[in-house]
């Protein structure tokens, strides 16, 4: 499914405290978390962002804590995808697991300006900057990760595996 929206640009090392500050970690409701998304980096982000908009960031996006509240906040405030030059590993896993589109592409980061219109074809890993007309290709996922993405995240993926286990037991 195509994702399209405006680019919100951030620099290197956007940590999870910037994405969702520690004081909100008693909150588990995604909608509530979304209201405070990126509060540490841009206080008004959550009110400005529109569904489908794309966060474009530099290296090590999502570094710091393992809080899943961070990708949950981004997803629930409408962010359609995060494109970064590189991701911190826990954030990357968390995003894949909850079904937030994350694409690694340094070139796209360097050649995107704030407000550019971005269009993404997730299955192909193709990122188009409609404002400049440029096209980029994100780093492909390893097959296992692609499988989780295809399943719609880790919840359906594990559910399928558990059902498979039950069937094995039933058949034995």
């Amino acid at each position: 499914m195509e994702v399209s929206g405006r680019a919100w640009k951030f620099g290197d090392n956007i940590d999870t405290d910037l994405i969702i500050p520690g004081q909100y970690l008693t909150v588990q409701d995604p909608q509530e978390l979304g209201k405070h998304c990126m509060e540490g980096a841009d206080r008004d982000f959550a009110s400005k962002v529109k569904p489908g908009d794309v966060v474009v960031a530099g290296h090590n996006f999502g570094c710091g804590s393992s809080r899943e509240h961070a990708p949950l906040a981004l997803k629930s405030c409408g962010v359609g995808a995060v494109i970064a030059a590189s991701f911190a590993r826990i954030f990357f896993r968390n995003a894949i697991n909850i079904g937030l589109l994350v694409l690694e592409c340094e070139e796209a980061y360097r050649r995107t300006s704030p407000g550019d219109e971005i269009s993404i074809q997730p299955e192909l890993g193709v990122i188009k900057n409609l404002t400049t007309g440029e096209e980029f290709k994100a780093a492909p996922y390893p097959p296992l990760v692609a499988g989780i993405v295809q399943a719609g995240g880790l919840i359906p993926y594990v559910r399928m595996r558990l059902q498979g286990k039950d069937r094995e037991k039933g058949g034995a």
């Binding site: 710091g64 804590s65 393992s66 809080r67 899943e68 990708p71 826990i90 896993r93 968390n94 697991n97 909850i98 995240g153 880790l154 919840i155 993926y157 594990v158 595996r161 558990l162």
Partner: peptide, 28 residues
């Protein structure tokens, strides 16, 4: 928790994950 890496001091491999990964590991 990201600071799970602490246990490496005892010669263990230890790493942090988020809630969904943890839930999957608890199940499987």
């Amino acid at each position: 928790d990201s600071h799970t890496v602490t246990y490496g001091a005892l010669g263990a491999f230890a790493t942090g994950v988020g809630s969904t990964d943890l839930a999957g590991a608890m199940a499987l």
